[in-house]
Design a protein around this nucleic acid. Structure first.
Length: 660
RNA sequence: GCCGGUGUGGCGCAGUCUGGUAGCGCAGGCGAUUUGUAAUCGUCAGGUCGUGGGUUCGAAUCCCUCCACCGGCUCCA
């Protein structure tokens, strides 16, 4: 038998006997690699380890410790999940089970309309571990479409997938099939076979570092008109330590949850008497919000915005003109009827009001760009299952601006706007961004192709010039124009959609808003919609989670707490507080009715940036003991003047004590 | 809107399976304690167990309705 040469990822060439498989190659490289190998990539194509190699192949062995490897082991774990479920519920139909970020899921339809309960997860997990212990090989086989239909006769979802793909449907690629004419399957053990493109790990024994997380309902093919299936989510990793680290990270994220911190820190609540998705801000949350809004106003004023106000309700006519009632009536609160049949709506958006302000008198090109800003409260009828803390609400306040400009001004205006947005977000402590360009939504866009193309091109150029990573969200634009959205990564790497900059050629036309151009013609302005925080509520939620409740000093509701060691230090404590209050610091004194340790503990739990402890020495010398958040070793005998100067400069710089 | 789960003093929880008229911790009031960097001690008060209905001699507990919240799905102008 002759040898053949294959190329390894490092460029080196290796000879293996003719007829060797990828696994043979791995063995020839090293026992350790053979043991860790899960699959192989041949000429850029992922496939099983048992695949035979050919001369000249570029071969990369895939181990669990890689993105491809994790995806494969997650997908294989999903198969084992389906296998376990069919053991426990004979006759269960299994639908699809892909790998997803950090894990996998599988969708089922249980016989007799049965449902999984949380308790079932434990028994399913037990059977899965048994299957893994059985060391079953994953074996690939290929069939014709007709054979495939027969094999999965009692699995209607599989038949549907086979038929759809055979008919040439471009369904979402969840790894179900090899191609339109070949049906590939993987079986393991005596009792389980699944439609699958592969690859899979060689044997179930390679799996095991997984955990089933939760059950959920999910529509077949993601379509709410189709049957709802039972979905089980799980997470799977290459090692016990990776699994533990992931679970630990989830626990950390839970500690940052703004809903939990909002309760613990007494920031806001959602009284059920008011209704879902409708928040009230308590004094401390109100302080954070007020400081956010004040700072935003200040920045807008400097950047040439004018401040406007508009009412919360309006006649239907306004949203008929804008087109919202045609497109988004479902998302609006139902109308109230007043004055003999006149319908009024709570406003879901501010833009039509700003257009009316524009139209209130004749406008000249000399006034453009005209930038209107409003903290505008809007109400949207979100479906009952989707409200979520402050991030998805039914009543919110947008920091909304509409910029009216000429076509010539549009590009430059967008460029400065994007810079303005990024600067302001950085002031709030977010600094890891990328941009997303949302293009024309097929089927629900209004306006000509030329207008859309022009708008998309301009946005793309502006985004590109900003020097940030840009991804395209095809078809994600609003019906009236494309948009750029700024995505920010938070302290634990999650991304949030922040600001959106949206171009709109349509609405000024619908409202017949015009300005008198230089050549004395009446022209529709271009309108740029722009929310920077998105909504104040949501932005606050993101900041709370970003900072895990440790708001930077300038935003923290209580910036300093002064504690006297004994009650005869309370007078001095109050004088320290007054000295700080006089320069605008938010400060409280907690008098010495409890031991110092208890008061310190309370202040720490409240995440107050600075705790000042004052005792005999401080009263004598005019000093304070500074216990900053995030430290455990206080700084004794700091002069009050020094502390005050340091604090004021930190607040003015929008810093946080942890930065120092 | 759909599927599953949960709802017990201000907050966090036990009690629910196996019906016999509620318990713990923190927080709160009062009193004592006078404290130098993450919990002083004692004492008191506080709940028609989310809502409405049903079963039962008897319901936090079993059944049904509705509401809210949690996790997903769908949606997110």
């Amino acid at each position: 038998m002759s040898d053949l040469d294959v190329q390894l990822p490092d460029g080196s060439v290796r000879s293996v006997p003719d007829g060797s498989t990828a696994l043979d190659l791995a063995r020839s490289i090293g026992a350790r690699l053979a043991k860790d190998a899960l699959a192989v990539q041949i000429n850029g194509h992922l496939t099983d380890l048992v695949t035979t190699l050919h001369a000249g192949d570029r071969v990369a062995i895939v181990t669990a410790n890689s993105e491809d490897g994790r995806e494969i082991l997650r997908h294989s774990t999903a198969h084992v999940l389906a296998q376990a479920v069919t053991r426990l519920w004979p006759g269960a139909h299994y639908a699809i089970g892909p790998a997803i970020r950090d894990g996998f899921y599988y969708d089922f339809d249980l016989p007799g309309g049965a449902h999984f309960s949380d308790d079932d997860l434990e028994s399913i997990e037990g059977v899965m571990r048994q299957i893994i212990a059985e060391d079953q090989a994953f074996i690939r086989a290929e069939y014709s479409v007709e054979e495939g239909r027969t094999l999965f006769l009692d699995q209607p979802f599989k038949v549907e997938i086979i038929d759809a793909v055979a008919a040439g449907a471009q369904g979402e690629d969840l790894g179900e099939l090899a191609g339109p004419s070949v049906v590939s399957t993987y079986s393991n053990g005596e009792d389980f076979r699944d439609l699958c493109r592969g690859p899979h790990v060689p044997s179930t024994s390679r799996l095991g570092h997984f955990k089933l997380m939760r059950v959920a309902g999910a529509y077949w093919r993601g379509d709410e008109k189709r049957p709802q299936l039972q979905r089980i989510y799980g997470t799977a990793w290459e090692s016990a330590s990776a699994l533990t680290a992931h679970l630990e990270q989830l626990a950390q994220a839970e500690l940052r949850d703004h809903r939990r911190l909002g309760q613990e820190l007494d920031l806001f609540s959602f009284p059920s008497e008011i209704g879902p998705g409708l928040a009230v801000f308590h004094p401390k949350g109100g302080t954070i919000r007020r400081v956010m809004e004040e700072y935003s106003r200040k920045r807008h004023e400097v950047s040439g915005y004018e401040f406007v106000y508009s009412p919360h309700i309006t006649k239907a006519e306004l949203f008929e003109t804008s087109g919202h009632l045609d497109w988004f009536a479902d998302g609006m609160y139902p109308p109230m009827e007043l004055d003999e049949g006149q319908q009024y709506y709570l406003k879901p958006m501010n833009c039509p009001f700003h257009l009316l302000i524009f139209k209130a008198r004749q406008r000249s090109y000399r006034e453009l760009p005209l930038r209107m800003f409003e903290f505008g409260s809007v109400y949207r009828y979100e479906k009952s299952g989707v409200v979520h803390g402050l991030t998805r609400v039914r009543g919110m306040t947008q920091d909304d601006a509409h910029i009216f400009c000429t076509r010539d001004q549009m590009a430059e205006e967008l460029a400065t706007l994007l810079q303005f947005v990024l600067d302001l977000l950085r002031d709030f402590g977010l600094n890891d961004f990328y941009l997303e360009l949302s293009t024309r939504p097929e089927g629900k866009a209004v306006g000509s192709d030329e207008e859309w193309s022009e708008a998309e091109a301009i946005l793309e150029r502006v985004a590109h010039d900003a020097g940030l990573e840009l991804v395209t969200d095809v078809g994600g634009g609003a019906f009236y124009g494309p948009k750029i959205s700024v995505q920010a990564r938070d302290a634990i790497g999650r991304t949030h959609q922040m600001s959106t900059l949206q171009l709109d050629f349509q609405e000024p036309k619908r409202f017949d808003a015009t300005y008198v151009a230089k050549d004395n013609t009446r022209t529709n302005p271009i309108m740029i919609h722009r929310a920077l925080f998105g909504s104040v509520e949501r932005f606050m939620a993101i900041l709370i989670e970003h900072y895990a409740g440790n708001m930077p000093t300038w935003l923290n509701p209580e910036q300093v707490r002064v504690l006297g060691v004994r009650d005869d230090h309370d007078d001095y404590a109050h004088s320290v507080a007054s000295a700080l209050r006089s320069v605008g610091v938010r400060v409280q004194v907690e008098e010495a009715s409890e031991p110092l340790g208890a008061r310190i503990r309370r202040a720490k739990l409240e995440k107050i940036p600075y705790i000042l402890v004052v005792g005999d020495d401080d009263v004598a010398k005019g000093t304070v003991g500074v216990n900053a958040r995030g430290t455990n070793d206080p700084d004794r005998a700091v002069s009050l003047d020094d502390f005050r100067a340091r604090l004021v400069s930190e607040i003015d710089a929008h810093g946080s004590p942890e930065d120092h």
